[in-house]
Design a protein around this nucleic acid. Structure first.
Lengths: 189, 189, 189, 189
DNA sequence: GATGAATGAGAATTCATTCAT
DNA sequence: GATGAATGAATTCTCATTCAT
């Protein structure tokens, strides 16, 4: 029966789910998510066939959102360092701006309810970013540091940086700077 | 004094909980945890007053276990780099040896059921490690890289490294090496 | 607006609860109450948020029911004695007609689960009756017999009378008569 | 295996049970009763084969205690009124002195766990009192007021009186007086 | 298409009772 | 005789999901 009507409502559900999953984990009740979205219990299931589907879609939605954010105003022509730095900044800015999405993503990432397929799909959205990292590796990262590994490290460092920014927001620029410096020195030698 | 509470059974519960929390998240049923431990449903609550207490104790247990592992054979007299490397190796070896503990810890870390107090207590167990990192900073890490931040990065890198080792165990030594190289180059300049 | 909560079902739950609380005390299982009401376990909690709420509502429901019964066809213009007698008759008739409500009320009255607020609210429903008793006191009951105390006595005597009627229903009219005679002679001199 | 040893412990259990049944109803946990009595869970069952037996014994114990109290210093030779008054005073004094026993008795009286046999046995302890009341009826109570009914009324009035004394202890003597006056005027014509 | 009542399978606990120590 | 760990049935309550309105 085709995608149901209101995209607005779908977004409301996802926004509500973000908030509640971030706060309560994936155990957050669908009824609560629906109510918080201004809808009733049953309506949620017109938009998502099951809670698992909702969680998986949420996972993809956030992952895609982050992916898009990372590439905003991407300076294709700039040096590898500048491009890396650009992505890094976008990552940190996105994370600082959307703390709930970040927290929700942490919950979803460890959840057994997110299928392997969703994970693959989610990572696919990072194709461009990985390609960028790959290029930088060409210039010689640490011996044998694969693209995937470098990407993982990039993400882990960004996550850690965001964690510390969340604890002490006034030092945001400091952590942002230091975090990247760390990454770059690891990559470039 | 009748039978005393058996430390053996307590450990069986914690082991079972490790396994199931790793697999199913903190939503794993207490009944299942008990059964897997070879005990009946009610017995679990003789050892842990509530599920929350079980989870918090499990968190501490694993955290302590890791803390102890990190300091095994710690070469107090060696150079900063060697000591860092030692701790790193211990971390990776522990993680590779106890994948379930690691997965359980990831679940517990993001759970709203782990109290602030448990987290503080858990981190306290890392006092020595942090002190070691602090020393290494004296020699000049990246400008302004606080001890806490460096510790966070260390952990994040180790986690990422373990993640990749888990995916491709044959490359274990490679990742172990590369991960540390990354850390050290970030720290030492 | 989907199906509305059915008043009929709510009443079925209360009726079932009356029966079972009367028989088994407040320990009666909610599952049993629901089943006896022809509903499933979970449905009960759509009507009453918790067992405590069910018990408190039941308490109020019965108390109100009794209060209404007492004032049925109240002869406002009659003499104090006739009015007292009227209320007495209504009390006895109500009790004889609804033995389960009476037994349930006894259980609820001594239960620690009935809140102070419910008790106050329940007594408030007896405002008119107390006023009537008050009037009768104006004509001089036993020296210093406060309205509240007289009301308590009235109730206690009615309860006792009902108890004996329950044991020997054929003597119903006899006990009804004798009980009131006792009350009145105590009150009027 | 004969009655187990320490009568002292048995009494401690009964005392603890009195307190807890008064407060929490018959749902009070045996483990709690035992602990409060300074004993361990299992020991309780050396003294009482089951919780039901404990409750029934408690019922009898309190009933007997009250029965004994009522007849203390009974003035066999005095007038009916004086003897009634004597019993009344003893009742009120006992109730005011042992509020927990009174509350426990209220709980036990409505409990389905007290057997018919216990109830009969309990009432048997009141043989003498009933006989006294019977005598007073010879002199002409309200027409047709049976001994049992009069006894029930006596008890109900005493209970009500104690209830009001509990609410306002300073008026104890007043209620004691008024309550008996009520009883006597009802009895004596 | 939206609603929310109905459902019943779990979930975490509690608790009387047993029995090894 | 005292102890308290072990047990598992029973209890209250939650929640994803369905479906009549």
């Amino acid at each position: 029966m085709a995608r149901p009507l209101s995209e607005e409502k779908r977004q409301a559900i996802l926004a509500s789910a973000t908030e509640l999953v971030a706060t309560l984990g994936t155990g957050a009740a669908t009824a609560k998510i629906a109510r918080e979205a201004g809808l009733s219990e049953g309506t949620l299931f017109n938009y998502f066939a099951s809670k698992d589907e909702l969680l998986n879609q949420l996972y993809l939605e956030i992952k895609t959102d982050l992916g898009n954010a990372l590439l905003t105003s991407y300076p294709s022509q700039a040096s590898v360092r500048e491009r890396s730095r650009h992505v890094w900044n976008n990552f940190i800015d996105w994370g600082a701006k959307h703390p709930m999405k970040r927290k929700a993503m942490r919950q979803l990432s460890v959840s057994e309810r997110i299928t392997e397929q969703s994970r693959r799909q989610g990572n696919a959205a990072f194709g461009d970013i990985n390609r960028m990292i790959e290029e930088s590796l060409v210039d010689g990262g640490p011996k044998g540091c694969s693209m995937a590994f470098a990407g993982g490290i990039f993400e882990a460092l960004a996550e850690t940086t965001l964690e510390f920014i969340a604890r002490d927001p006034r030092q945001r620029e400091h952590y942002k700077e230091t975090g990247f410096a760390f990454f770059w020195s690891g990559m470039s030698k």
